[in-house]
């Protein structure tokens, strides 16, 4: 018997008696690690906006409720283009200056706006509703042709007293659901070019 054969016979054969039902210490470590990865990944995806994105700050804390509900201004007073173009538009200081070249009420925000207008400062509004950049959406087509109301996509923004601080991301599933409901085209070319 040479050395190699001796070594061979020394190794016990792994038979059907081998226990697989207990994961052992390393098994527990691996399962724990996997569970940790899955949980933290899920948390990161669901909470990424709150964790990584800073809240959106507008130049003025615009009160939609005061303008739309209490003073009966239409959406097109400030968002001029939604019936004419693909985009809706955000107001220039000139539009605000129609009423706010002088002080109308006694809120601090308004006082700040009046000063900004007087100083000729630009109003850099931030868009709060976002679609993926490759989607070709037309406000005109939805408002004028399909006769949708603004709140169908924009929710109750008209009755908010301060602008939301989070960006709403519009998803394809929302578009598709509505298109199915109203029995309109879900042809890819309608939105993707």
């Amino acid at each position: 018997m040479n050395a190699r054969d001796e070594q061979k016979s020394a190794v016990p054969e792994a038979g059907p008696t081998h226990k697989w039902h207990h994961p052992g210490r390393w098994g527990a470590v691996i399962i724990g690690f996997l569970a940790f990865t899955v949980i933290s990944a899920t948390a990161a995806v669901t909470l990424q906006d709150r964790i990584f994105r800073r809240p959106v700050e507008q130049p003025i804390k615009f009160n939609h409720k005061l303008h739309v509900e209490d003073n009966q201004l239409g959406c097109s007073t400030c968002h001029e283009y939604y019936e004419k173009e693909t985009f809706s538009g955000l107001p220039d200081p000139d539009v605000c200056a129609f009423c706010h070249s002088e002080k109308q009420g006694d809120s601090e925000e308004e006082a700040r706006l009046v000063k900004m207008i007087a100083d000729g400062e630009a109003l850099e509004w931030k868009s709060l509703f976002r679609q993926p950049p490759h989607v070709f959406y037309s406000h005109r087509r939805h408002v004028l042709v399909a006769k949708l109301e603004c709140k169908t996509c924009h929710g109750d923004i008209a009755s908010t007293t301060a602008p939301p601080t989070r960006v709403t991301k519009l998803r394809m599933q929302d578009c598709i659901d509505c298109h199915h409901q109203k029995n309109v085209s879900t042809d890819c070319t309608t939105c993707h070019r």
């Binding site: 993926p132 490759h134 085209s185 042809d187 890819c188 070319t189 993707h192």
Partner: peptide, 14 residues
Amino acid sequence: TQIGEEGLVAQVYP
């Protein structure tokens, strides 16, 4: 890539 209702073969790049 899909064929649409009006027979146009579309390519959805994303």
